[in-house]
Write a protein that binds this DNA or RNA. Structure first.
Lengths: 233, 233
DNA sequence: TTAATTTTGTGCTATTAAACATAATGACAT
DNA sequence: ATGTCATTATGTTTAATAGCACAAAATTAA
């Protein structure tokens, strides 16, 4: 369910956004061609096969992007955090979405119309170069992940996922609890393993004092050990 | 070993290249900032960790791009054909290479200087948009491949690789023999399996009359069956 | 509050594919 | 031609992990 007109100004003012090379006037143009929506935890933002209507910016919340594979088994290909973009790959490739996006927390997104965006790309080449850099970086990440997910063993894959979540979402105030609360199934889908094995391996990590578990709360006790497991298997 | 000044004009005149939106004058500018090289089968074009010096265009030949994973096991992430670009990801992300490129046939490549290329990106936004589209398409391919390689079983993965090679390099004049001659090891590295299993599974496909084998020559007898194996496992 | 449903946790079994071993074949250098 | 090395081929064993079954706990709905 969408609630219109919720503030998503974050998307335009963030220093780290690809928009940072736009002039105030250009930002204003995009602002005039956007709409905001709100999604509750678990709601679908877009589905595999849908046609993109614009560039979606995540102003607040957390979103998982995943593909359905063999027998409906899902593989999470990306986790988005604010301020970040989602669905841009399909938009720029002029294709339909090849993955789905679901809010894993209540989220606010803003949609910038395709037409206005492409006009901006033509006008401001520095902006285009920013997009090129983002896509190239993301492609490198994807290639690395392919190798990881296919070659590392379960412990290595899970350790790497935990490191990834740590780097993406950071810690709570205690400096050790991951600031993201995923189901065991989502953790499994991120790490290319069954839910059973994700549960089992998390328990093992906890028994080795590498992490602590309290429901969906995961605390990292020993980053060095986690890195070692990720690298060595 | 590199041989300078071998013709690689293909790269500039190809209709299907991202350069097709450049004016004659702009093409001339890039031409003034390029150099050609030749690589024999098996020679390294660049290695993981190297710093890109420009955009490499494959004018003639065939190249495999691969990453080294756990225990040096290689995963082929892309196969390049003429006219196509290699090494552009690292260049555009301003990173060092995260994969290596090796000629699998005698190949001619041309290197367009980084500086001239980026100046062109700034001048011609249509060109930049072309690059954006290429990167976005490639990213989609990479994401799909991640799911395939992690979820499909051996038969499915191998079938998909054969279809991929067929779509990438096409057939010889007999309309059934793949126009690319890979070692069993390369086929394995493309399909995320051991060499033994690639050999075994190819034999099985041959015994099922889906393909025919004659040394490194692979002929596709039944595309429909191959597609079915790829989809169903 | 109770009932229903989902999520988490744990043990056992079956299956897949890797690892290993050993030939056979083919390519290449001397 | 002859030896060396890489590649291809095939059989056997072993290890990893998916699949399944079931119970406990937590969450949601009635």
């Amino acid at each position: 369910m969408k609630h219109k007109d919720i503030n998503c100004e974050n998307c335009f003012i963030s220093k780290s956004s690809v928009f940072n090379v736009l002039s105030d006037e250009q930002k204003e143009t995009l602002r005039h061609n956007h709409s905001c929506s709100h999604y509750k935890k678990g709601e679908v933002i877009y589905k595999e096969g849908d046609k993109p209507t614009g560039l979606i910016c995540l102003a607040d919340g957390k979103v998982k992007i995943f593909k359905e594979g063999v027998g409906g088994r899902e593989q999470i290909v990306r986790m988005a955090k604010p301020v970040g973009f989602i669905g841009y790959r399909a938009l720029f490739a002029s294709e339909n979405y090849i993955a789905s996006a679901i809010a894993i927390e209540d989220s606010t997104v803003c949609n910038i119309e395709k037409k206005a965006l492409f006009e901006m790309l033509e006008k401001n080449s520095e902006f285009a170069i920013n997009i090129i850099r983002s896509l190239a970086t993301e492609l490198g990440f994807s290639n690395s992940r392919t190798v990881t997910l296919t070659q590392k063993h379960i412990r290595g894959r899970l350790a790497e996922s935990l490191i990834f979540l740590m780097e993406t979402y950071g810690f709570e105030d205690d400096a050790k609890t991951l600031k993201v609360y995923l189901s065991r199934e989502d953790i499994a889908n991120l790490s290319n393993m069954t839910t059973s094995n994700a549960i089992r391996t998390l328990s093992t990590f906890a028994s080795e004092n590498v992490i602590s578990l309290d429901g969906r709360k995961i605390s990292i006790n020993d980053i060095r050990a986690l890195n070692k497991i990720s690298e060595m298997g």
